[in-house]
Amino acid sequence: MQPKGPYRLLGWSLGGPLAAMVAARLEKQAQEVSLLALVDPYIPGSGQTNEDDWRKDFTAFVSVILPSISSELVANSAHEAPRKEPSETELAIMLERLLASDAAYGREGYAALGGEELARTFCVARHLKRLSLKTDALHRLSCEADCLWSEGRPQEERQALTHQVGQAPRRAIETSEDHFSIVASDSLLLQVAEKLQEVAQREAIVDEQELV
């Protein structure tokens, strides 16, 4: 779709280090990354994710995508499942049962998706988590990152990001949103729109100078 830069990248949670890795690969190819936005990113090697319990991840996943379902019902569903992590098909059946009990089922957002799609989404997230646990650190970057942190994010994790990529963020903003609600917040959308406009103006000036 776009064989040449400048590129604009944004990643949230595990998508944060993924976006940084993509930026590193593009820079290695002598491409320009004009925007790297990291939204409350996972920091490899920070101990942020120090356990791998599918039940806890499943409960957190459902609490975010289907908030109207009682946490007790979700916990019971996960507890009744086999101790070994269920297959995608088994997860789909569990999610279909939970969806059937949800008053918002079929209306909008995640509630409009079926159990199979949600199970696939969860399995992808679990796969990314396992990969992230194997990653020790990010590569150093030439481009500067813009970071949006959720309130209360430990300072040592923010410093770890600076140390790994080799420089402090160009701009660091803290919001009152938590890790999950931050991606749907108006403040994030406004910040992204502002940054895209700023980058577009800067790129337009560069294009004009090159034409001259």
Results as ranks from 00 to 15, higher is better:
T49E: 15
A193E: 07
F122Y: 13
S34L: 00
A160V: 02
R8A: 11
I205Y: 03
K4V: 04
Q159F: 05
L211F: 06
Q164D: 09
K134G: 12
Q31W: 00
G109R: 06
A81V: 04
W54T: 10
R130F: 03
M94F: 06
V124H: 10
D53R: 14
R153A: 06
A168E: 07
S71G: 07
M21V: 01
G152E: 08
L95V: 13
E88M: 12
W54A: 13
H127T: 07
L14G: 11
L118G: 06
D102K: 09
P3A: 13
A160H: 10
G152L: 06
L189I: 01
S68V: 04
G109Y: 03
L98E: 10
M94V: 04
L118N: 06
K4E: 13
K56L: 10
M21W: 04
S77N: 12
V22M: 15
T162E: 15
S34D: 00
L190N: 04
A168W: 02
I43M: 15
Q197C: 12
S63A: 15
Q2T: 11
Q48I: 01
D136R: 14
L148G: 08
A92P: 08
T175Y: 10
G152R: 08
V199H: 14
A111T: 00
L91M: 14
L148V: 11
L133Y: 01
A23G: 12
G47P: 12
D102R: 12
M1S: 15
A92G: 12
L211S: 13
E208M: 09
L148Y: 07
G45P: 11
H163P: 01
G114V: 02
V124P: 03
S34Y: 00
A204S: 09
L73G: 01
V124A: 13
T175F: 09
D186M: 09
E51V: 07
F58A: 06
L35Q: 00
Q164A: 07
L161I: 07
Q191G: 01
A160L: 13
G11T: 03
A100V: 02
A100F: 06
G166N: 04
E108K: 12
D146I: 13
R140V: 05
A168Q: 07
A23V: 04
Q201R: 15
H79Y: 08
N50C: 09
L141N: 12
Y105P: 00
I43D: 15
S181K: 15
R170F: 05
A193C: 03
E80P: 03
G15I: 01
R83G: 11
H127E: 09
P41M: 14
L38A: 03
N76A: 08
L99C: 12
L138T: 04
L10H: 05
Y105G: 00
A172T: 07
I205K: 11
R153S: 08
A200F: 08
A104D: 09
L18S: 10
Y110E: 05
S101C: 11
R171K: 15
F58D: 05
L148H: 05
M1C: 13
R170I: 01
R120K: 05
S13T: 05
Y42H: 15
L128P: 00
L141T: 07
A119F: 03
A119W: 02
L113S: 05
V124I: 12
L38S: 06
K195W: 07
Q29E: 10
E88H: 10
R171Y: 03
W12N: 11
I93D: 14
P44R: 14
S150Q: 13
R153T: 09
A104Y: 03
